[in-house]
């Protein structure tokens, strides 16, 4: 008996190890694909071609950039806190992989299924703020510090509407288990169809945009004001890891949106959603959402800081609170 338990334990450990290695690969692959798409789409929006010469339509461009970045000199500024300075990119990157492990790509395809998956993911996503603050603080650079402070203020403000809008889904399904939440949406009744949850979906998208420090809310790295924000002093792959983690966070944001509101791995029109087709539907929903984020980023100008804070505290939080109350009322009545 003991032997069997040991075997299962080693097997699950092996499974976790393989899952983590594959997921690290997926995180980097995601960064390469998204970086390429972002550069191409930005170019098309500005009536340019984008990368063209390296490979067909420049598809090798991001790989070349990655190799170049690996070969850059790593500078640690003299007055920087050496240990924290080196720690920050890793602290930014690791939680991304840990969250990827908990995402249900399809019914059978996931790293680990937790019955508190949503709480776990939100908790891990909050470490990102910590990493950015460490990066800004340890660089000993005023621009980095400003960027980090802005990022902390912004992420703390926007975590509240995210939590409140996700909570209305949790009220509806009475579960934190992501697989159960996806299964509750089987068939055609995705949660974004319900009017109250659609409001939550829109609030989540706006707040998620700000949470990933992108689009009209990229104040932490506002290039025209703060050289490059919190990663001003990072060269080579320190900066590369921040970029990879940023695209990873974008993926997580989009996948949470698709799991909670757009039916996760459920196909539209009741189409087949087996282990592989489910992953296909899930990834296509995630990529459509991410392309929308890129589209928004290259279309709208940056907001001012007071506008950003007003949007969170005066509009998103009250709206999501009221929405939560309405959802609770509906759940109780129906």
């Amino acid at each position: 008996m003991q032997q069997i338990i040991d075997l299962i334990q080693t097997y699950s450990l092996l499974r976790m190890l393989i899952a983590f290695l594959v997921l690290i690969g997926i995180v980097f692959l995601n960064a390469i694909v998204m970086g390429y798409l972002e550069r191409k789409i930005a170019a098309r929006i500005q009536r340019r071609w984008g990368p063209m010469e390296i490979g067909v339509q420049g598809w090798l461009q991001m790989i070349l950039d990655g190799v170049k970045m690996l070969a850059k000199q790593l500078i640690v500024p003299r007055d920087a806190d050496r240990f924290l300075f080196r720690l920050a990119p890793l602290l930014c990157f690791t939680p991304v992989v840990m969250i990827f492990a908990a995402l249900p790509f399809s019914k059978a395809l996931y790293g680990i299924n937790l019955h508190i998956g949503l709480i776990y993911i939100i908790a891990m996503a909050s470490i990102n703020v910590f990493a950015i603050l460490i990066a800004g603080w340890s660089s000993n650079n005023k621009y980095s510090m400003f960027g980090a402070m802005r990022s902390v203020a912004q992420n703390i403000a926007y975590e509240i509407p995210i939590l409140l809008s996700l909570l209305s889904v949790v009220l509806t399904t009475a579960s934190f288990d992501l697989q159960k939440i996806v299964e509750a949406q089987s068939g055609w009744l995705w949660f974004a169809v319900y009017p109250n949850l659609f409001v939550a979906f829109v609030i989540y998208l706006i707040a998620g945009c700000a949470e990933t420090n992108r689009a009209p809310f990229d104040l932490p790295e506002a290039e025209s004001e703060l050289t490059a924000g919190f990663h001003t002093e990072y060269s080579g792959f320190g900066f590369g890891l921040f970029a990879v983690a940023e695209y990873g966070n974008l993926f997580i944001m989009a996948s949470i949106a698709s799991i909670m509101f757009l039916g996760g791995w459920n196909g539209p029109f009741g189409l087949a959603s087996g282990p592989l087709m489910g992953a296909f539907w899930f990834l296509s929903k995630v990529f459509v959402l991410m392309l929308v984020m890129i589209w928004v980023r290259w279309t709208y100008p940056r907001v001012r800081f007071d506008q950003l804070m007003n949007l969170a505290w005066k509009y998103l939080i009250p709206f999501s609170l009221v929405n939560l109350l309405i959802t609770a009322f509906l759940v109780k009545m129906i």
């Binding site: 550069r39 170019a43 500005q46 009536r47 340019r48 990072y234």
Partner: peptide, 20 residues
């Protein structure tokens, strides 16, 4: 910008920080 576009050669990423 458009029409000339050095992005074709992968040189369009104008980084604001000297470190990058």
């Amino acid at each position: 910008m458009a029409r000339i576009d050095m992005a074709r050669y992968g040189a369009e990423v104008f980084r604001p920080s000297a470190r990058q």
